[in-house]
């Protein structure tokens, strides 16, 4: 199948290096300490952060740092075919773990000893790149909750199809069987916190694809910062200090 037309357009009309439209909203869950909604094209994800709060399971308490927990779920209606997945299926357990580790790398856990931070992410609409969207949403929600972080983690995926590097794969491109690289970076510190790939690529191609993904992450970071700054200003003038 042809994923990039001779004119250089992808199936959904994007250029190979073009991202889908992103949109973020803060404060969508009233009861949570911080929450965010993140959209990348048709992928829509909601994240809520609770805490830092008392550790629920005393045996897991850490005396020098905070315990970070993450739960990833996909709504039953998020995909085309409505499937009832058991709660602890292997895919969501793996993604929960990935998000937890990525977030732990940026949260300054040593400032909140003997406490627990819960991150809940749910996919409302899935169209490829749910992993990246979840990380971006979780990052925003953590910033909204006022939890100290070294940097905002941003994530973006890239792939390689029809011998072209493609940025931000959608579901059709994702399931085409080509390589899919999910990258998470700390833009300010210029460090990689997550790198996953599910096929083989030669080193040169991989570097191109990775470079593309880094560009994508940075674009997401710029947008997220704008949203956060706008939110901070709103809060400030509402309080009228």
């Amino acid at each position: 199948m042809e994923y990039v037309s001779p004119e250089g357009l992808r199936l959904d009309g994007r250029r190979p290096m073009e991202m889908r439209q992103i949109r973020a909203e803060i404060g969508v869950v009233a009861k949570a300490a911080g929450s965010a909604l993140f959209e990348m094209g048709n992928t829509k994800v909601i994240a809520a952060v609770y805490g830092p709060r008392e550790v629920q399971n005393r045996s897991q308490q850490l005396n020098d740092s905070a315990l970070v927990r993450c739960e990833y779920t996909m709504a039953n209606f998020s995909t085309g075919d409505r499937m009832r997945k058991p709660k602890g299926d292997r895919r969501s357990t793996e993604i929960s773990l990935v998000i937890r580790q990525t977030m732990e790398a940026c949260i300054m856990t040593h400032l909140m000893p003997r406490s627990q931070i819960d991150i809940f992410v749910q996919v409302l609409q899935a169209d490829g790149g749910t992993r990246s969207a979840c990380i971006n949403a979780a990052s925003l929600a953590l910033a909204d909750a006022g939890i100290p972080m070294r940097d905002l983690v941003t994530s973006c995926s890239a792939g390689y199809l029809n011998s072209t590097p493609l940025l931000d794969l959608n579901y059709i491109e994702d399931s085409a069987g080509g390589a899919d690289v999910t990258l998470g970076i700390l833009p300010k510190l210029d460090k990689v916190t997550l790198l996953q790939m599910d096929a083989k690529l030669s080193v040169e191609t991989f570097e191109n694809v990775m470079q593309l993904a880094i560009e994508g992450c940075k674009a997401v970071a710029t947008y997220i910062r704008e949203v956060l700054l706008e939110n901070t200003k709103q809060l400030e003038y509402r309080r009228g200090i």
């Binding site: 972080m149 300010k188 700054l229 901070t232 003038y237 509402r238 200090i241």
Partner: peptide, 20 residues
């Protein structure tokens, strides 16, 4: 709300920051 915004922005000069 806009009025509130204009009132507060006079008081401090863009001191808001985000993470990093």
């Amino acid at each position: 709300l806009e009025k509130l915004e204009s009132l507060s922005s006079k008081a401090n000069s863009n001191a808001s920051v985000t993470v990093a």
